[in-house]
């Protein structure tokens, strides 16, 4: 097994398993919190974007374009350095909380656009048909529009969630301890690049594989198309 030791030293990796386990847990927790927050705000953004009031949809359009046209890293820096100055309680936020806020601000427009597309994907004839057979608007919404919209929305939402999980890696740059941070810590302590970074990559791929499995399950349930990667 000597040759294997020289290619990839499992012994050193096994010494760091707790660090990586903590990293995985943190990555999943941060992603989950961001997912819930950005989905909630995303629904609001989608509804606001469909509003006919220019005072509502214009600022939202600017927000969406601004987020889409600038790198996440810059957005993280702006929130990290800007929030303490802007908010009275900004100084009490730690890196993880700041990171969650930055990622939520970044992900919300993407979620919003996906939800908006899902709502618009339901054909007008479906709504007219449902109303003309005597359904109330509420019945139309719950029995006709939402089931179709959700089936259309879930695959791209899963894709966006996978992107969100990968995006958490950038939080390591503002010293949030997550999976990438675990890899960086191992590298800074042992100075062996291969084991540190390959292990990090493998952990990310494991989370990704779980996401793939989950999407397969959802796909069978919904009978919709395969997940869309963004």
């Amino acid at each position: 097994m000597g040759w294997l030791q020289s290619v990839f030293n499992f012994r050193i990796v096994s010494q760091y398993w707790e660090v990586f386990a903590q990293g995985i847990v943190n990555t999943i927790l941060i992603s989950a919190v961001c997912l819930v927050l950005s989905l909630s705000f995303g629904i609001l953004v989608a509804l606001g974007r469909r509003s006919s009031n220019p005072l509502i949809w214009r600022p939202l359009a600017v927000y969406i374009q601004a987020i889409r046209s600038t790198p996440l890293l810059i957005q993280i820096y702006l929130i990290y350095y800007g929030l303490p100055a802007l908010l009275p309680f900004g100084n009490f936020l730690n890196e993880t909380q700041t990171g969650i806020i930055a990622l939520t601000i970044h992900t919300t427009p993407y979620m919003g656009e996906i939800i908006r597309a899902g709502l618009e994907s339901v054909h007008r004839g479906q709504i007219e048909g449902a109303l003309s057979v005597g359904m109330t608007p509420r019945q139309t919404m719950t029995n006709v529009v939402l089931p179709q919209a959700i089936a259309n929305v879930v695959p791209p939402l899963l894709g966006q969630t996978a992107v969100l999980i990968k995006d958490t890696s950038l939080l390591s740059i503002i010293a949030v301890f997550e999976l990438m941070g675990a890899g960086l810590r191992m590298f800074s302590e042992t100075v062996i690049a291969t084991e540190s970074y390959v292990t990090t990559a493998v952990c990310y791929l494991a989370i990704y594989a779980m996401m793939l499995g989950l999407s397969g399950l959802v796909q069978r349930k919904l009978g919709g198309s395969a997940w869309q990667e963004n």
Binding site: A162, K166, L170, M180, G183, A193, Y197, A201, I207, Y208
Partner: peptide, 22 residues
């Protein structure tokens, strides 16, 4: 595709920059 899509670009960059030379 899964290897490149399943890991963050930051990790890929570190692997190309730090691991490939080894």
């Amino acid at each position: 595709l899964h290897l490149l899509r399943g890991s963050p670009y930051l990790v890929q960059l570190y692997i190309v920059y730090f691991v490939f030379p080894s």
